[in-house]
Each structure stands twice: as C-alpha cells, then as structure tokens.
C-alpha cells in the first residue's frame, strides 16, 4: 500500500463514525418494519393533514354515531360537564371570521371548551381516531371520525347541517376554526431552537426576572391569599397523612369523630370490595348473620378478635346454621384484622 493510499484509508476511517457507523450498527438487534406494520401504527395526523386517511362523513351520520358512542359522557350536544369538560360552546359566529375566540379577549368565557381552545382541526381528527370512544379506543373507522367531527363542527356553527366533511374539504374548514389565530409560541419554554433559527419560540429567554436580594428586600410582607377553611378539611384528615413521629405531626383537621367516620367509611368500602356485604348485613341477616348478631355473640370474650379472624379466614359451618361460609384466604391479614375490628366495634 502506497503512502498516499494509507493516508486516504485513515481519512476514511475518521469520516466513518459520523456518516455510516451508526446505521444498522447493532448486529442482531432490530429489524426493518414492514409496510403493513407501519400502516397499522402510524396513525398521526399533522396540522398540514399529512397522515389523514381518505374518507368522508356527514352531520346526520355523525349525530347518530355520537348519540350511540359518545353522548353518555359528553352529552348529546357535546355540552356536558359531568364527566369531561365540554367539547362545544363559548364560540361565536364572529370568531369564525377573526380566528380569535372573543371570550378570551373580553374575559366573558365561563368555561373553556375544546372548540374555544383548539386552533387546528387536525388535532381533533387525530385524537378521536386514536383514543375515542373512552372505553373502546381505536374502534372507529375513518368515515366515522369524519362524521362525528362534522357533527361537532355543526354544533359549533362552523358548518351547516347538511355538511359532509372529507379529506378534500377539511382544509377549508380549518380556515373557519374559531380559535385558529389564538395560539402563540412567543415564549422561552421550548427546549429547541428559536423561531429565528427555524424552530419555535424565543430561544429560551425567560418572561420573569427575579433578583436574589438577601437583606431588607422589602418593607413589609404582603399576603395575597390564605388557605380557606373549607380547603383545610377538603383533603381528609391531614394528621393521617404524615408520620406519627419525627419533627412535626400532621395537623388534626377533622377531629377524632370525623376521622373515625372517614375510617369507617373506608372499612365499609373494604368490606364491600372483599365481598363480605353480599352475605352479611350490618344490622340484618342476609345469607350469613348480621354483624349485630356477631357482636352480640362474641361480646366480652377476650379472644373474640383472634377467633373471628381465624374463622373468617378458614370459613366454617354450623355456628350460624347450615349455610357454609367460604374460606377467605385471599384477604390480606391486615385487611382481615381491620374488618374484624370494625365489625366488633359496631361496624358503623
């Protein structure tokens, strides 16, 4: 090998890592995805409609599908606030012209709905197709999605009642989206290059500037807000959300009475979940004895708790008649003890 050849070879080696080394580099690891596999999973639809499947659907069909598959959560008109925040509402005909939801400018917007916020119709198409209905995601066909979206658009008064939405006209509908001009990327919280460099935002410049003053930083302390009394107790017994030892204790917010009530409610839930309440009533016999009868029988016996724990665990027959109690080996010991204590204490 001549000298010049050698240096060429060395040069090529230096180049290699950036150009070719990494590609297909790991023998035995990874394989090419088949076209069918990519098609099955590559379901995203971008704002420029890349990825949008061909198809169409009209308002009428959309209403039928929506009533059948969506209305139980969203309400028949997408207005429901019961399970999720409303889809429809808060947009006005003039918003369609301006592309800005005027309620955000005037402050006259009781609740933000999907259509007050979303600027890109592709987002809604993409999301319904990939994630809806709630309990059966990815079960809708593209034509179903077009129809349901057509129904939304009609409810939001963006298209008329006889409208058919399709891959052909969706871009025209985009031009009527009420909040299409309502987004800004002029901020410093995008972790990539700035808009000036072909990316998004201002390149990471923060919008607030605090100064690390150390001494006599202000004449007085201005309290803007304190914890409302209802909020103090809305999260349960705070004493029970902290360790029982250490430098602090959880503050007792509900008092022992309410804490016991909360604990009892939890135990009743445990009893229900564990299947106890199917056969036992608190104050009445169902299949097995009522808990009041159990208490009456075991009252005053020093080993009542341990005996009952053993009985519930192993099951039994004869003490209360001929209907056998099945063994409950699946119950955790600590749950079993909690349940038995609760029963003996009157199961309130």
């Amino acid at each position: 090998m001549s000298r010049s050849c050698k240096s060429l070879f060395v040069f090529a080696l230096f180049l290699a890592p950036t150009v070719a080394l990494a590609f297909d580099h790991y023998a035995g690891v990874g394989r090419q995805a088949t076209p069918a596999e990519v098609k099955a999973w590559d379901i995203d639809v971008r704002p420029d409609f890349k990825g949008l499947p061909k198809g169409s659907g009209n308002v009428e069909r959309g209403q039928e599908l929506f009533e059948e598959k969506c209305a139980s959560c969203h309400g028949s008109f997408g207005e429901s606030n019961e399970v999720f925040t409303p889809l429809i509402g808060g947009t006005k005909p003039e918003d369609i012209k301006s592309g800005r939801v005027s309620g955000f400018l005037t402050g006259d917007i009781p609740q933000r709905t999907t259509f007050t916020k979303v600027a890109t119709i592709s987002t809604v198409w993409d999301y319904i197709y990939r994630a809806m209905p709630w309990t059966a995601p990815k079960s809708l066909k593209p034509d179903d999605v077009y129809a349901i979206l057509a129904y939304f658009l009609n409810l939001a008064e963006i298209v008329p009642g006889d409208f058919t939405l399709s891959d052909k006209n969706i871009a025209e509908v985009q031009a009527r989206m009420p909040n299409r001009n309502g987004m800004t990327t002029d901020h410093g919280m995008w972790p990539g290059p700035s808009a000036k460099k072909g990316g998004i935002g201002n390149g990471g410049v923060p919008d607030v500037k605090n100064v690390a003053c150390m001494k006599n930083c202000k004449p007085e302390v201005q309290i803007g807000s304190t914890l409302p009394e209802y909020a103090r107790t809305a999260h349960g017994e705070l004493a029970d959300q902290n360790r029982s030892f250490g430098p602090v204790r959880g503050t007792r917010t509900l008092g022992p009475e309410a804490a016991k009530k909360a604990a009892d409610a939890g135990t009743l839930e445990l009893a229900t979940k564990s299947g106890c309440m199917a056969c036992h009533g608190i104050k009445s016999k169902i299949v097995g004895p009522g808990y009041n009868e159990v208490v009456a029988r075991y009252q005053g016996q020093p080993d009542a708790e341990s005996r009952l724990v053993a009985k519930v665990k192993a099951g039994g027959q004869g003490v209360w008649g001929n209907v056998p109690m099945p063994p409950n080996a699946h119950l955790k010991d600590e749950d079993l003890t909690t349940l038995v204590k609760w029963i003996l204490a009157g199961s309130k």
Partner: peptide, 8 residues
C-alpha cells in the same frame, strides 16, 4: 387571550 403553545 392567546394560549402559549409548546411550552415544555
């Protein structure tokens, strides 16, 4: 009244 988008 604008929403900041892609705040990450």
């Amino acid at each position: 009244g604008l929403h900041r988008q892609y705040t990450s």
